[in-house]
Simulated scan of single mutants.
Amino acid sequence: MTRVLAVANQKGGVAKTTTVASLGAALTAMQQRVLIVDLDPQACLTFSLGHDPDHLEASVHDVLIGAQKVGNVVVETSDGMTLLPANIDLAGAEALLLMRPGREFTLRRALDTATSEYDIVLIDCPPSLGVLTLNGLTAADAVIVPLQCETLAHRGVGQLLRTVTEVQQITNPNLALLGALPTLYDARTTHSRDVLADVSDRYGLPVLAPPIPRTVRFAEASASGATILAGRKNKGADAYRALAANLLDHWQNGAELNTFAPYGD
């Protein structure tokens, strides 16, 4: 059975795109057939994986408006994943979808024609709670929330969780909220742990392990058109490999997801 995971947070700069790309590469290395979907009109995921959004013949925009099938639009990446790319046209698709009945189900219907070719689909939702993010959440089996370990990280989390609850009530009752994924984590400071403890206490949200460390390697990987897993051994890649193994064990064997306790159990 194909697993569909959305990565969502309406706050920008929380490593959504990095998480989708790195997690996808790690799962691909574990012999999984992975499709990653760029739902952000800024197309950062597409660009970071070596494809110029301005030179695409077609994109996820064409899929959402019904002009193309998923299989006709996807492109390959150097890490072995398949990418459903985006470009700025996607901003126009959002406006068109607002006028359509059942607009929240558009991506789900499109993916239904292609998911049999993949073991895992990862969706990079845009930094908003608009119709594109609703499409991502409606198409997904589960969602994780990247959360940067910085002051005011919790701002907007409550609104996102309310949106997830509404999606569960209206368009996707089977959507599972797996938890928050700590990003930009600095183990040397108590500040990072304080932020995670605050979010866990405030919202009762599981904090997934391992936390993703702050490292310059992520920026270097994006500039090279590949993921952080393609370079030398580093702590960021190791963290995403551990997360991928954790998720795969959860999906295939029903294992409990590892969680992170900021101040120990």
Rank of each mutant, 00 (worst) to 15 (best):
A58H: 01
R214Y: 10
A230P: 02
T151C: 11
L177T: 15
R217F: 13
V199K: 07
K235E: 12
P127G: 05
P211K: 05
L35R: 03
D52Y: 08
A242G: 01
V195D: 00
V131F: 07
L152Y: 14
H61D: 07
P101D: 14
L84H: 05
T138F: 03
V164E: 02
L111T: 00
A21L: 08
A58N: 02
K69Q: 15
L160T: 11
S128E: 05
P210I: 08
P101H: 11
L107N: 11
M1V: 07
A261G: 02
L107F: 09
A219Q: 14
P262R: 06
H191W: 06
G136I: 02
T259P: 05
C125G: 06
L205P: 09
N72F: 01
V4Y: 00
A255L: 07
C125A: 10
I170Y: 06
S192L: 03
G12A: 14
D62T: 06
T163N: 04
L90Q: 04
L160D: 12
T77K: 06
L229A: 13
Q68K: 15
V20K: 02
T46V: 10
L97D: 01
T82L: 01
Y203W: 14
A153E: 07
R232F: 02
Y118W: 04
T19I: 00
L161R: 10
P206D: 00
A226Y: 04
A244W: 04
A197M: 10
T19H: 00
A15Y: 01
L229D: 13
L160G: 09
L247A: 15
V145Y: 09
Y240L: 09
Q252L: 10
L247V: 13
Y185C: 04
Q31P: 01
G156R: 08
D141F: 05
A25T: 12
Q169S: 13
Q252M: 04
A209R: 05
C125E: 03
A223Y: 07
D249V: 00
D62E: 14
N258H: 12
G254Q: 04
T151G: 07
I170W: 03
D141I: 08
P206R: 01
N87Y: 03
D194E: 14
T115K: 13
L161W: 11
N9H: 12
E104H: 10
V20R: 03
V157K: 00
N174R: 14
L45D: 02
I88A: 14
A230R: 13
P213M: 08
A255T: 11
L137D: 02
M99S: 15
L83G: 08
A197F: 09
L97N: 02
Y118M: 03
P210F: 06
A187D: 13
L96K: 15
D119C: 00
I36N: 08
A140K: 10
A67M: 05
P262G: 06
P210M: 10
S200M: 12
L129T: 10
G102D: 11
G264L: 02
V73C: 04
L27K: 05
V4I: 15
F218I: 11
F47R: 15
S78D: 13
A153R: 07
L64D: 03
